[in-house]
Design a protein around this nucleic acid. Sequence first.
DNA 1: CTGTTAGCGCTTTCAG
DNA 2: CTGAAAGCGCTAACAG
Lengths: 356, 356
Amino acid sequence: MKKRGAPAADGKIVLTEGKTRTGGQAVRMIDVANAANVSLMTVSRALNEPSKLSEETRKLVLDTVRRIGYVPNHIASNLASARSNVVGQIVPSIQNSLYSHTIQGSSDVLRAAGMHLLLADSGYSLDEEEALIGAFLAQRVCGLVLHNTAHTPRAVQIIRQAGIPIIETGDLVHNPLDMAISYSNFNASKEMTLYLAARGYKSIGFVCLATRNNLRAKERLKGYNAALTALGRARNPALVREVEGGLTSGAHAMTDMMQRAPEVDAIFFAGDVLAVGALFEAQRRNWKVPERIAIAGFDDLDILRHTVPRLTCLNLPRLEIGRRSAEAVLQRLRNDGPVMPGRLDLGFEIIQREST
Amino acid sequence: MKKRGAPAADGKIVLTEGKTRTGGQAVRMIDVANAANVSLMTVSRALNEPSKLSEETRKLVLDTVRRIGYVPNHIASNLASARSNVVGQIVPSIQNSLYSHTIQGSSDVLRAAGMHLLLADSGYSLDEEEALIGAFLAQRVCGLVLHNTAHTPRAVQIIRQAGIPIIETGDLVHNPLDMAISYSNFNASKEMTLYLAARGYKSIGFVCLATRNNLRAKERLKGYNAALTALGRARNPALVREVEGGLTSGAHAMTDMMQRAPEVDAIFFAGDVLAVGALFEAQRRNWKVPERIAIAGFDDLDILRHTVPRLTCLNLPRLEIGRRSAEAVLQRLRNDGPVMPGRLDLGFEIIQREST
DNA sequence: CTGTTAGCGCTTTCAG
DNA sequence: CTGAAAGCGCTAACAG
């Protein structure tokens, strides 16, 4: 009777005086078993549930593993166990430092748990996101962290079918697919506007990214408008602009707005690096900040702390969002039930600095 | 005779009036085959080599796939085919914008090729990198993009055994494990120093990250020294500093150096955001840049174009490095031979702006 | 063009 | 505590 699982007859593995040569072929678990004179299952246990083996056997196996340079095949392991140790994360842009903070957060937590991060960016496109979700599900990720809170109908459908934990992080939506872990864009924007009013600014401008196809920007604009309403101030279209991202864009938005509405005395840049671009432009034109024009930003980018003047902004829990998202996935995987609340508000704070 | 591959008797899949319910269980290829009344292989072909099927059959199968919401299991596919569609990338830090550009580059290329990116950061630690390499090989990545050019002996060993394409991107090393795709830190640093000398600066300071455990920083320091030698200038320890990364750190380095060596008239910050930190500090102290002190940076961060004055720096092909690395992996996978040259120099350029 | 057979490397389950 | 059998969901290789 042929011994099951014996090394392939073509001799992929050659043991020579205690050293291993693999000729590009991977060492398999069965090779370790043969080398250590135990069964394949014993090797599997030594690696996965070491406590269930005698210390002697365990040591023998683990030594052999090291000696012949065995690297477990998690692909096979995942298939056999119908489990996965990979979490997928999709962000609008990898380069954007805001998202890289969130990515760092999930990466840290996953790594500590022996899990891995499959990463992709949707380029701010819903269709691309849908394609990526499909591709990630095909990779049998055990959880998915999305930034978007809007999705194509088909994306929603395949997500629902997948039955894995899904975290949405871009906004604290009221009806998440599964869980939302974020801060409220609406509240953040509203509070900052109220704060500027409290500082005495009479004519507060608002600049954000295109609200079309961008729920976050939309919420921020709503927050700004809600603040105006609360303050009993009228809306003025000349004080609101939707622009593209980027430093240059922020600079233009400021100069344009000051031309069209010279009474503006503060501008809240609710997106990206717009505020920084505006500040640099003000430096260039020798406009005093905040005397001539006060500037507030959204995210607490590292440089905002170092510009002259330092920039007032919101402090959003970007890193923490990543961490908590990964933790939520892990927790759901362990308990296999919706233990977490559907929404986790990580809050925000206003950081007052010299620019307002 | 029991029909092989029939749906499990417990009826995981229930087809009801053309709709699918999966109850959390995944639809398998065999379910598609049964639903379409073809063999499993036909489904496999419809998905992977559609040209080998009659249009009729292909359409039938693909429609069925959509109808019952089948998502292929790439884990199983990878195992069976001994191929993988995942490339691993390990960077020192995910948050650092320099690396996120490189990540974006590889992500873009991989995505276009239908491959995926498994990402992790080593936190600048060689041991952590070793652990990650092991973990990624266990995931059977089909290629590996590393930033480090130094590795632990064990990391080198398991990489060699893996027999997959490896790209090192942090420096244009002379003896890469497999392929190096980068620019030369030595040359970049040397050229910038020579450029500053050509601009008329007599006493050029140099600030970089700790050279211990950081080959890139070491090469940059060597480049600076080589330039001094070429210029026939003496080395002055007071003009060289190794510091931690960060804006604050750059600010301190500058003030310290100007105190210890007041004759310094230009400083080359060969790392991270040090130059920006120094510039902001100069603004704060009202030191004229470049009149009192010229400042040059290493990487062309987005903000360097917008500061006042704009900062002279090197333009390094960060994004391109990511792209070309991913492309190199793909090419090697296709040709299965070392077609690429071992080293690919993507060059750099000096961007002269107002700060020097 | 379509189907059948035999695994990929591992875990699960059940026996001892 | 250790081992044997039976797949995980898919593809390679060969047949028709």
